[in-house]
């Protein structure tokens, strides 16, 4: 087993229940405090997880039970209201992967922009540029404005860039449901490769087959709490017995 790369200690985050809830300046500047206010709820609370390098973890749970929120905390795009989330090492987040792309720029410019924003240096981008384009199968379209790509091509390009980030931790949130079958197979293969290369995977999905394919350990989130942390088969079994088997 490798070193601990993700350490979540007593993490909690709360959201407002209704958008129009009264908000005062005092609330906004309250920063982190432990009091729960009446119109707020804890989306996650008291979550403790330790992930070691090379582990492949699947997060299971119904919608709205905090799966994506946990992933976002690990990705560092949200900050916990209590507890801590420490991530040692770079993260390649496959969350809203098409987010960084700009409509009016070409495919080539977008690759440089997005890879750069995710922390690649110029030299690294130049070195991997051909791989990225070939993987996305967009060799003929490098000078096309991004907005003229089909939605499938957009996802292909995005996956290709982010999965090539060479970061030790890979976060995946439901992105594999998109794209045509051939490309999905390619994505799977790419993730397999990354896992074989010793990457740590944090995977959120409703697809039991995908979870079983990639993950060895599962986290079962329900009602904002971490209900179970164990081998993926056991976690899926617990989830299915709580909410009825989908198969």
């Amino acid at each position: 087993m490798g070193d601990v790369v993700i350490r979540v200690v007593g993490a909690g985050i709360r959201f407002r229940r209704n958008r129009r809830g009264r908000r005062s300046f005092k609330d906004l500047f309250a920063g982190r405090n432990r009091r729960s206010r009446p119109n707020e709820f804890w989306a996650l609370r008291g979550v403790d997880v330790e992930v070691r390098a090379g582990e492949a973890i699947g997060v299971v749970g119904r919608n709205g039970q905090g799966k994506s929120t946990l992933l976002k905390l690990v990705a560092g795009v949200m900050l916990p209201d209590e507890g801590r989330v420490d991530v040692l090492g770079g993260v390649a987040p496959l969350i809203e992967i098409t987010g960084g792309f700009v409509d009016d720029l070409t495919v080539r410019e977008n690759v440089h922009l997005t890879a750069g924003l995710h922390g690649m240096t110029r030299a690294e981008i130049d070195e991997r540029y051909d791989e990225i384009i070939d993987f996305a199968e967009l060799r003929e379209a490098v000078d096309t404005p991004y907005k003229h790509l089909s939605s499938g091509q957009k996802v292909r390009l995005a996956f290709s860039v982010i999965s090539r980030l060479e970061e030790p931790i890979l976060l995946v949130d439901e992105v594999l449901a998109v794209g045509d079958r051939a490309f999905r197979d390619k994505c799977y293969q790419r993730i397999d490769e990354l896992l074989a290369g010793g990457r740590t995977l944090f995977f959120v999905s409703h697809n039991e087959r995908d979870l079983k394919r990639f993950c060895t350990r599962g986290l079962y989130l329900d009602k904002g709490r971490l209900q179970l942390d164990g081998p993926i088969e056991g976690v899926l079994a617990a989830y299915n017995s709580d909410y009825g088997s989908p198969s």
Binding site: T121, E166, A182, E193, G198, T200
Partner: peptide
Amino acid sequence: MPLALSTVTLASPSRPPRSPARVYRQTLWL
């Protein structure tokens, strides 16, 4: 269907983490 197999690169802790100031500068210019 033959898949374009790419070179598998190992999870490389070899790359030194860049300083926050450098990340900030690079992001800003990008």
